[in-house]
Simulated assay, not measured.
Amino acid sequence: MSHANSLAEEGAAKVPDLAALANYLTGSGWVVEDTDSRTSMWRPRRAGSHDIRIVLPTSQRVRDYSDRIADALKALSFVERRLPEEIADDINFGGADKVAVRLTPDAPPGEAPLLLAHSAISAIKNFVVASAASLDSNSLVLPPRRPQRAEAYASQARLSTQPGSFILSLALPLADIYSDESDDSTPPGQDALVEVPPQPFGRKVTNRMLAATLKAQHLAEEVSVGNRPISSFGDLTPDAPNATELAALSSLGGPDHDIYHIRFAKSPLAGGAAEPALLRVTPGQQRILGEAADYLRTKQPRAGVTVTGLIVRLFREGGFGRGEAVIQGVSDDSGEARRYRVELGELDYNEAVRAHANGLQVTATGDLDIRGTRRSLRRLTSFAVIPGLEDES
C-alpha cells in the first residue's frame, strides 16, 4: 500500500446529499451529458481530460443510493487523485481542503500514547492558527495576541481520525466566517459550492501551511549537512516559517520526535487543485525545527508585547529630555517576572518618576528585543501609570 493510500484510508464518511453532489460536480468542472427519468450522466467539461463518466440517480429514495454515490466518489477519486472520503468531506463541508498527519507510534493500529496524541493535536491547532496569522503578520515571531480571524478560522476546522494507522485528518473550510463571499443562510453543500472565489481564505491557509513545511524541511536539511547555520531560519525570505509554525512541525511527532507523514489535498472548488502533496518529516528534521523555533523566539524581536510592573531604576542625562527606565514586571508574552528596559520621552519619563516615588505600577507595550539576558521594549506604542488608591479618591 502506498503512503498516499495508507495516510487516509477509506472511512465511513457521511454519504453526501444528491443536490450537494450535483453542485459539487458543477463547481469542479463537470457537465451533464445525458439524462432520463431515472439517472443523469456526467462528464468532465474539458474534452479529453478523462474518458470517464459518473452516473447519478435522479432521486435519493432509490434503494441502492449509498452504493451509487460510493461509485461516484470512487470515480471522482480516480480523476482528482484524492481519496473518496476526502471528496465526501469536501462536499459535506461546502468546500474544504484536507491536511492529514499519519503518526508512527509503537502501538496497535488505531491507537497512540496519550502524550503523542495530545502533542500532535495541539501542534495541528497551533499550525493552523500560525499559518492563518502569518497571512496578516509578516513576522518570524508572531505577537502574543493572534489575529481574531486566525483563531476564528481554526475553530471552524474539523478533526477526525482514520482507521488503520493513527491518522489525524483535518478538514479546512475554503471560506471563513469573515469572507465576504460566505452566506450563513446557505446550508453547507448547497448552491454556495459553485460560488467559491478563486483564492478564498482557507485556500491561502492551506497554501501557506504547505509552503512553510517545504521551506522548513529544506532549511533543516541544509543545517543538518552543515551548509547553513541555524541562524538561517532568521532570514525573512518568501515562505519563511515563523517560530510557531516551526514549533508545531517539531511537535507533530510527539515528545520522541517519531517519524510522521503529512499530506495536503486541495479541493478543486477553489481552482488550481493539484495532486496531493505527501511529505515525510524525520526525527532529525523535527529536532532542528524545534531548535530553530527556540532560536527565533530568543533572537527575533516580538511585536506587541505588554509588560506590567514596578519601576526599579531610572536614568537620564540632565534634568530634562528622554531617559531610560527599568520595569520589574510580567509580560503577556511569557508570563515570567523579569526586568525590561524602556526608553521614554520626557513626559513619559516624568510619569515614570512619579510612579517610582509612589510605588505605582506601570504598563508599557512595544516590540520585545532580547540580547542575551537583556530584555528591552522598543518602539513603544503605549506607556501609562496604573492609578493607585490615592488617585481614585
Rank of each mutant, 00 (worst) to 15 (best):
L103Y: 03
T104H: 09
P105E: 00
P105W: 00
A107Q: 01
A107S: 12
P108E: 10
P109N: 08
G110T: 08
A112D: 04
P113D: 01
L114V: 14
L116F: 02
L116P: 00
A117K: 01
A117C: 10
H118N: 05
H118A: 10
H118S: 13
H118E: 12
H118F: 02
H118C: 02
I121M: 12
I121L: 15
I121E: 11
I121R: 07
S122K: 10
A123K: 09
A123N: 03
A123Y: 12
I124A: 08
I124R: 05
I124C: 14
K125T: 15
N126E: 14
V128N: 08
V128S: 02
V129W: 01
S131F: 04
A133M: 03
S134I: 07
D136C: 03
D136P: 00
D136V: 00
D136N: 06
S137H: 15
N138V: 05
L140C: 11
V141K: 12
P143S: 08
P143H: 07
P143G: 08
P143N: 05
P144E: 01
R145V: 11
R145H: 03
R145F: 07
P147E: 09
P147H: 06
P147A: 08
Q148C: 04
R149K: 10
R149N: 03
R149F: 02
A150I: 01
A150L: 04
E151Q: 15
A152W: 03
A154E: 06
S155L: 13
Q156E: 13
Q156H: 09
A157M: 14
R158N: 08
R158A: 07
R158S: 12
L159R: 02
T161R: 13
Q162L: 13
P163E: 05
P163M: 06
F166H: 01
A171Q: 13
A171W: 07
L172P: 06
L172G: 03
L172Y: 02
P173L: 10
A175Y: 07
A175E: 15
A175V: 14
Y178P: 00
S179I: 06
S179V: 03
S179G: 09
D180C: 04
E181L: 09
S182M: 15
S182D: 12
